[in-house]
């Protein structure tokens, strides 16, 4: 049940449904006082996490994603649960920033997703459960405090 501090959205694991889920989450967190700039960070990171579920966890099967949000202690916790394939190696991709100082033909056309997720969150947890995957993203609601889980591999 939704409260002043929490909400739950269940969405089909498809590209089209991701759009609607992102819009809904943005409405839910804005209504609960999350600053506009952080709303943007949340939408960018959540889009990548949901796209990853659609493309990989649900590559061969279909299913739903349950998104639970909770605001407490100046933090937003987003919990994503799906019932698809596990993350390879049962661990989170590191999320290095693809090299951009390369020849035109070698410019990266992908591989940005996990980098952005790491960069925009202060904490990131992955658990493989008996019935699927659980990804927890934690965002600070104090503007400068995110980037805590950044792991770009940059010097």
């Amino acid at each position: 049940m939704d409260t002043d501090h929490s909400f739950t959205i269940t969405t089909p694991g498809t590209e089209e449904a991701v759009r609607e889920a992102l819009a809904l989450v943005r409405v839910r967190i804005r209504a609960r006082g999350v600053p506009e700039d952080i709303c943007g960070n949340v939408e960018i990171a959540l889009a990548e996490a949901l796209n990853n579920i659609v493309e990989h966890a649900y590559a061969d099967i279909s299913g739903t994603v349950e998104i639970t949000g909770e605001i407490k202690n100046q933090r937003l916790l987003l919990d994503l649960r799906d019932h698809g394939q596990p993350m390879p190696g049962l661990s989170l991709p590191k999320g290095r920033l693809p090299d951009h100082e390369v020849a035109l033909e070698d410019l990266p056309e992908g591989g940005f997703g996990w980098f952005m997720i790491h960069n925009l969150t202060m904490k990131l947890l992955y658990n493989r459960m008996a019935d699927g995957n659980r990804l927890t993203m934690v965002f600070s609601l104090q503007e400068k405090a995110n980037r805590g889980s950044a792991n770009s591999g940059a010097p």
Binding site: A47, L104, L107, G110, G113
Partner: peptide
């Protein structure tokens, strides 16, 4: 809003233009 797939598609267009 642009996600990483959209960003990749914009970069791909630049590469295609050459």
């Amino acid at each position: 809003f642009v996600d990483s797939s959209g960003l990749g598609a914009i970069v791909a267009s630049k590469k295609q233009i050459g």
